[in-house]
């Protein structure tokens, strides 16, 4: 195994509020290997976007990293001053957000933005940089790139803008790309094009990618491994096939069952009763215990760590041999 590009250990993010400190992320740990796509899924408020923001050093104040460490190729980046982190963000970590307009400067042509980004981080002549900018626009599938390089962001459609953002995130040849809901604002037909593009580029360039989304379909198509988040923690993490096809954590299982099938009509959709707790009201023990169909005493008392389940690791007491209750057949074998 090559050393991981990104290594997150025990990440904890807190929000001081007038009613006390809220813990938004707690004990989040994972690695991403070179060329690997890690999907991070969860419902709104689970902390998936915040994990991405913490890694790229763009947590919204008053949020702060209160524990754990984030290492990029072995070097700690969570403690770096803002300026050093900004340089890393351009050069070694690329970021793609849901709304392309927040990333693009409306006053500059897309070519100028690409060229500036490349020249800041790579030593290139003006001519070379321009040639490469056109090359990148071609690579992300923008037709007539040699002409479009001098267009302004507002002259592109939404899908084309997101392609430009992808080019911008990748042009300095980062070793890690953090993509936060990159296709959510796009229509399905465009979404499919963008997913295909991201997947191809990650493979071709060997870039590690953290793909944050609420769309299981996108994850299933793009990711190698998946982390399912719930109430600021990782509920389950493992290879994409195992998590999607045979989830071990009752929450992941409920989540997968909730997705309406496209190939048949069912009389009754399985859902999960209730809703994810607010940060200010996370129950003791396992955060999922009030909604869990398999809950037992221990879940209400102790908070489970990630436990090996055979195919994945799940934060669930059903998989601790010491528990009074063990996972039912249904969960064990998917």
């Amino acid at each position: 195994m090559p050393p991981p590009v990104l290594s997150v250990r025990g990440l904890r993010v807190e929000f001081p509020t007038r009613r006390g400190v809220l813990t938004a992320l707690s004990d989040v740990s994972f690695d991403i290997a070179p060329g690997e796509v890690l999907g991070v899924v969860g419902e709104s408020g689970a902390g998936k976007s915040m994990t991405g923001a913490a890694i790229i050093g763009l947590l919204e104040p008053p949020g702060r990293i209160a524990g754990g460490e984030i290492r990029l190729q072995g070097e700690r980046i969570d403690t770096l001053p803002y300026d050093r982190m900004r340089r890393i963000r351009g050069k070694r970590i690329g970021a793609i957000f849901q709304d392309p307009l927040t990333t693009l400067n409306p006053l500059y042509t897309v070519g100028r933005q690409l060229i500036e980004t490349m020249q800041t981080h790579l030593s290139l002549s003006d001519r070379e940089a321009r040639q490469r900018a056109i090359g990148w626009l071609e690579m992300v599938g923008i037709p007539a790139a040699a002409q479009r390089v001098d267009s302004y962001p507002h002259e592109f459609s939404g899908g084309m803008r997101q392609r430009v953002v992808i080019a911008l995130a990748l042009c300095a040849e980062p070793i890690l790309v953090v993509a936060d809901e990159p296709t959510t604002a796009l229509d399905v037909s465009i979404q499919a094009q963008i997913i295909a593009l991201l997947k191809r580029l990650a493979r071709e360039k060997g870039t590690a990618m953290m793909l944050v989304t609420h769309d299981m379909g996108v994850i299933a198509e793009t990711a190698d491994r998946v982390a399912v988040m719930y109430a600021g923690r990782i509920a389950e993490i493992g290879p994409v096939r195992a998590v999607v096809k045979a989830p071990k954590h009752p929450y992941s299982a409920g989540l997968m069952a909730s997705i309406p099938p496209l190939d048949r009509k069912v009389a009754h959709l399985a859902g999960i009763e209730g809703a994810m707790p607010r940060l200010s009201a996370i129950p003791p023990g396992c955060a999922f215990n009030p909604r869990c169909p398999h809950v037992f005493d221990r879940c209400r008392r102790e908070r489970p760590e990630l436990i090996e389940t055979g195919t994945t690791r799940a934060a669930c007491w059903l998989y601790d041999p010491a528990s009074e209750r063990q996972a039912p057949e249904l969960l064990r074998h998917g």
Binding site: S189, I190, Q191, I195, G217, V218, A220
Partner: peptide, 24 residues
Amino acid sequence: RALMEAIPDLEMTGRQRIPVGGEV
């Protein structure tokens, strides 16, 4: 047909989808 083709596949058949080109 294109709309149905565009929906991401949860079955992970490894099938290459051919997304419809262009935009609305």
